[in-house]
């Protein structure tokens, strides 16, 4: 049993390395900027969704307010950069730490809540964040911040002529989020989280400190999402509250994980790989009419997939493989 589990984990790691290697070669084949753009967004959402999955999938605390951490990452980076000239790399880390601290601060009251009350609280807190940023003059209010061009370099994390560096950063972030999940899955934290998700009372009685494990999950999750936010801000070179903290981000982070398989290692990557290109393609090929056909198609697909595969696409894969291989 133990051996099988270890073997599966080793296999996962090898598959991930191969996929990452292949992905790293993708820009050699794909020269089209539009397609590169989609690839970058796909990788970013895969990373975000993977991070969301740590708190909401593994630990079972469904958050629909992760846009808050995304926005905090983006704003910390850009405020430090535009107002104080701090390099985005430091802003990125700072944003991550701030987001993690906020997540833990919010965790104190929030983790007492259960079910819908918790979900609504997460939506509401992100919405408060959005409204505050929209009214915060110093941070650009609703107009947002346009990131000044300070040259083409890794140091400033700005690239004007090519999108490739963004691609590689997104890939690295995606690998990082995946690896953190992979690593945590087999750590004591991973086991605590699953116990907390399945039955908090039982977990508590067996000596798992439920509260602390939720806090841990929230902090890791928020940190990684904030890094994603910082990346997104540099990538777009323009941010405003609605475009980095809007409710749709919270949903877009959750959606790939849900479609791919919530609480699974591969779910978010798989979900993002299908969902994000689909989103972008429907938007650009049939969204041009401005009459919402893209929304109709996109929405219908979401309804169908979520109804047809409640456990996500990963469940399809494991069904076709040898049944009950590990569990």
């Amino acid at each position: 049993m133990d051996n099988k589990f270890a073997a599966r984990r080793r296999r996962d790691l090898i598959i991930a390395a191969v996929l990452a290697g292949l992905a790293a070669l993708a820009p050699l084949l794909v020269k089209d900027v539009y397609v590169q753009n989609i690839l970058i967004l796909t990788l970013m959402y895969a990373a975000l969704s993977q991070s969301w999955n740590i708190l909401s999938g593994y630990c079972g605390q469904i958050s629909l307010g992760h846009a808050l951490y995304f926005g905090i990452g983006a704003y910390t980076t850009e405020l430090l950069f535009t107002k104080f000239g701090v390099l985005p790399w430091f802003g990125m880390l700072g944003g991550g730490v701030i987001a993690a601290l906020i997540a833990m601060g919010l965790g104190y009251p929030f983790f007492r809540l259960r079910g819908h009350y918790f979900v609504i609280a997460t939506i509401v807190i992100a919405e408060i964040g959005l409204l505050l940023f929209q009214n915060w003059e110093w941070a650009g209010a609703a107009m947002g911040i346009t990131i000044p061009i300070r040259g083409d370099s890794w140091l400033k994390f700005q690239f004007l002529r090519t999108k490739l560096p963004y691609f590689y950063f997104a890939l690295a972030l995606c690998c990082l989020a995946w690896f953190v999940t992979w690593w945590l899955e087999d750590s004591k934290w991973g086991f605590w989280w699953r116990a907390v998700k399945d039955n908090p009372e039982a977990a508590e009685s067996l000596g798992v400190v439920v509260f602390n494990s939720k806090m841990g999950a929230a902090a890791v999750s928020a940190f990684l999402v904030a890094i994603g936010g910082a990346f997104y801000a540099q990538f777009l070179a323009y941010i405003d509250p609605e475009s980095v903290m809007g409710f749709q981000f919270s949903l877009l982070m959750a959606l790939p994980a849900v479609l791919g398989g919530i609480g699974t290692l591969w779910g978010p990557v798989l979900g993002a790989a299908i969902l994000i290109p689909m989103t972008e393609l429907t938007r650009s090929y049939i969204g041009g009419s401005g009459r919402g056909v893209d929304l109709i198609v996109y929405g219908t697909l979401i309804v169908l997939i979520s109804l047809a595969l409640p456990q996500g696409l990963v469940s399809l894969l494991s069904r076709t493989k040898a049944k009950g291989a590990t569990r």
Binding site: I62, L64, G115, L251, A254, L255, V258, L259, I262, G290, R291, G292, V293, D294, L295, I296, V297, Y298, G299, T300, L301, I302, V303, L304, S306, L307, P310, Q311, G312
Partner: peptide
């Protein structure tokens, strides 16, 4: 059977998008 809450959230959310699209159309 699994993830009932999430399935409800996302199927009705998908419906909301469709309805908005239809209204725009």
């Amino acid at each position: 059977k699994a993830n009932a809450g999430m399935v409800q959230i996302f199927s009705t959310f998908g419906l909301a998008i469709v309805m908005r699209g239809l209204a725009q159309f």
